[in-house]
């Protein structure tokens, strides 16, 4: 409900916060969030998020700069190719985030996922894509708690 109130404040401004319709919407949103089945909570590590965010902002800016330079260069310096990469991340939010961020990194675009095998399209086949992917994967792994390890911990507790 607080989230709905903040969203209304952002979208409609502080004066609109106390209108009847606004209060109704907040109540309904809060009620809906209580009634709907609870999804699994995101296993995020809050402390690792600023580092991931900083890394993302920096590398997505470099990504934009890189592709803008290639697009405007008179000789169009691109050598497209497909690259495959096997990710060790767990399925679900970590892998989804990985694929989304890959598309914003310099020169990579995620095309297809089969099991854990990711097919990527790269603009420059000579670039060191693999080490960039490994770096990103490490950062995403640091931001999520691994459900497999969590399960292990529960079992230890129960034993």
């Amino acid at each position: 409900m607080v989230g709905a109130a903040i969203l209304w404040w952002i979208l409609a401004g502080p004066e609109a916060l106390l209108e009847p319709l606004a209060l109704l919407a907040m109540l309904l949103a809060g009620g809906a969030s209580l009634l709907l089945p609870v999804g699994r909570p995101l296993p995020l590590r809050p402390r690792a998020i600023p580092a991931l965010l900083g890394f993302f902002l920096r590398s997505s800016f470099v990504g934009g700069l890189d592709v803008a330079r290639r697009a405007l260069h008179p000789r169009l310096p691109i050598e497209p190719a497909f690259v495959t990469y096997r990710s060790e991340l767990a399925h679900g939010p970590p892998l989804t985030l990985f694929m989304a961020v890959v598309s914003l990194l310099p020169g990579t675009l995620s095309v297809r996922l089969e099991g854990r095998l990711l097919t990527l399209h790269v603009l420059d086949r000579n670039a060191d894509t693999r080490s960039a992917l490994i770096a990103l994967e490490g950062r995403i792994r640091a931001a999520f708690r691994d459900p497999r390890k969590e399960r292990g911990r529960h079992e230890e507790k129960n034993a």
Binding site: S60, G63, D66, V67, L109
Partner: peptide, 18 residues
């Protein structure tokens, strides 16, 4: 200017994001 669908997607997503 880019030659194929994939390369064009690179240009659109990354440059427009920045």
């Amino acid at each position: 200017r880019f030659p194929d669908v994939y390369s064009r997607l690179h240009a659109l997503t990354k440059a427009d994001n920045v």
